[in-house]
Design a protein around this nucleic acid. Structure first.
Lengths: 249, 249
DNA sequence: CGTCTCATTGATCCGCCTCAATAGCTGTGG
DNA sequence: CCACAGCTATTGAGGCGGATCAATGAGACG
C-alpha cells in the first residue's frame, strides 16, 4: 500500500525530472542500482508514470527538497512551491489522473507514496490524521497565497524578502537572539523562478540587501539573516503571524 | 450543524467585506433585516468573526460570486481566486483559527457553512463526499497554480487571456459552434487585481484583443469570445486539457 | 589546464505603471 | 427636465523597474 522511494538531483539535462523506484529504505548504493536500471517520473500535464511501484497518488517527503513547478511552452518556468521533509504533496489535477505540476528533485532524498484511494480511506478512518492533513493543506494554501500576492503586487525586493522569511520560518531552527541561518539548495535562477524574477535581478537585489546589512551570503546560497526585523518589513509581513499561518499546529 | 447565510455586495466602503448572519433560506427582506441589525465578517489575518451563527469553518457557495483576496499594507490587493456557486472554500490558515484570505462579495448570493470538525467528521464518514472534496481541492490548486505561472512569467496579454479562458470553462455553458459568452461581475480594476495588472493596462489589453477580433465587449464586462482558438493560444493553454485539470470529474 | 556552471556587473531596452484628462453612464435632487 | 456628482472606462504622455544581452569572475570537476 505504501511505497518508499528515493529520488536524486538530476545533474543531466534529462527531461524526466523526478527519479523514483520502488525500494525499501536504503542507502545510496541501492539508489545507484535503481538509477542504472530504470528511471521513472512524470512531466507537466501528462499522466503520472508508474513502474515497479505505485507512484500515482499522494506523496510524503521524508528527506530532501523537491520543486513543484509549471512551465510555458517558451520554456519559462515558475516554481509553484517547494516540498520539504514532512510535506504532503498531491500533484493531481481535477481528474485525479494527470499531474498539474512538474516535480523536480533539488537534492537527493526519499519519499513515500500511496494511491489516492488508500489515502482517502486512511484519512477517513483516522480522524487525527485527517485533521493534520487538513491543517497542512491549509498551510500550503496560505503559503502560496502569500507568494501570489507578492508576485502580483510586490517589488523585487519584497518578493525576495518574503521568500527568505518563508525559508527562515520553514527550515531555520528559531533561536532568539541568534541570527537566522540556513542553506537553500537553489541557484539564483531557481530562486528567480520561484519569485518571478530573472536570475540577474535576483543577484542584484540580494546584493543590495547584503549591502544594507540585512543579510550575508556565502558560497552558493548559504544565507545568514542579520536583521530579521528589516527583512520582515521589506517582505511586508509579521514573522510571528506568518508562522502561525503557514506552519501546521 | 449547517448554517445557511446570505451575503450582499458591499456598496459602501466598509472594511468588513462579507456580510453574513444566521438565517434559514430566505429572501431579500430577511437579508435587509440582517443588514440593519448587524453585519458579520472577517478581515485579512484576523480571527473569523462569528455571531448568531457558526461562521467559522468550511463554506459552500450556493449562489453568487465571492472574491478571495490578500492585501499589502500600502493597499494593493491581489485577488487569489473567485469562489463560484458549487465551490467549497476553506479560508483558514495553518492554525485553523485565522483566515489567510479576505472574502468579498462581488454579487448578492448565499452560502452554507459548517465548522471544521463537522466537515472533517462528515467527509470521514462519507467516502464519496471525501473523494469529491479531494477532487475539488485538486481543481482549486491546479487553477491557482496556472494563474501563478502567468503571474510570474506571462505577459499582460497572456494573463488576461488565461483569466478569460478560465471564465469560459468555469461559467460559460459550452456549445460547440457557438461563441463562448458570459458576464463577469467585475470592474477592470478588480480584473487587474486578479491578474496582477493595473486597471489601465487591463483596458488597453482587452481593447487590443477586441481590435484583433478575438472578443467583443459590451457594457460592464459582458464578454463574447469570438475566437476561442486565438484566445487559448494567447493564454498558452489547451482548453480541453485545462478543463479536465480544473473542473472536478 | 580547459570546460562547465553559476554569480556578478554594466548597458540598453521595453512593458507596464502612474498621472492626468476626458467621456460615458447612473443615480439623485432641485 | 436638467444639473451635478460619483464611478468606471478610455486614451495619451512620461517614467521606471526589471528583462535582456553581453562580458568577466569564480569555483568545481575531470
Amino acid at each position: 500500500m505504501v511505497t518508499n522511494l528515493h529520488f536524486a538531483r538530476d545533474t543531466s539535462n534529462n527531461p524526466v525530472r523526478l527519479f523514483c523506484g520502488a525500494t525499501a529504505d536504503g542507502h545510496s548504493a541501492e539508489l545507484m542500482r535503481l538509477f542504472n536500471r530504470r528511471v521513472l517520473g512524470f512531466t507537466d500535464n501528462s499522466t503520472l508514470l508508474v513502474e515497479g511501484g505505485e507512484c500515482q497518488g499522494v506523496y510524503y517527503v521524508r528527506e530532501g527538497w523537491l520543486a513543484l513547478s509549471k512551465s510555458l511552452e517558451e520554456g519559462k518556468t515558475q516554481i509553484i512551491d517547494f516540498a520539504l521533509p514532512g510535506d504532503i504533496i498531491d500533484p493531481a489535477g481535477a481528474d485525479g489522473a494527470t499531474s498539474s505540476l512538474t516535480m523536480e528533485a533539488l537534492t537527493n532524498g526519499a519519499l513515500s507514496t500511496m494511491p489516492y484511494r488508500h489515502w482517502e480511506a486512511l484519512t477517513g478512518d483516522w480522524p487525527e490524521l485527517h485533521h493534520l492533513a487538513h491543517r497542512m493543506e491549509s498551510a500550503t494554501q496560505a503559503r502560496r497565497a502569500g507568494r501570489m500576492l507578492r508576485l502580483g503586487k510586490g517589488t523585487a525586493e519584497m518578493r525576495i524578502a518574503y521568500a527568505l522569511v518563508e525559508f527562515c520560518i520553514r527550515i531555520a531552527p528559531v533561536r532568539d537572539g541568534e541570527y537566522c541561518e540556513f542553506h537553500i539548495p537553489l541557484t539564483q535562477q531557481q530562486l528567480g523562478d520561484y519569485v518571478g524574477l530573472s536570475s540577474v535581478h535576483v543577484c542584484r537585489t540580494m546584493r543590495r540587501m547584503a549591502g544594507k546589512g540585512i543579510l550575508k551570503m556565502r558560497d552558493h546560497m548559504d544565507i545568514r539573516v542579520l536583521d530579521r526585523q528589516s527583512l520582515a518589513s521589506l517582505a511586508g509581513v509579521d514573522m510571528v503571524a506568518l508562522k502561525s499561518e503557514i506552519i501546521p499546529q
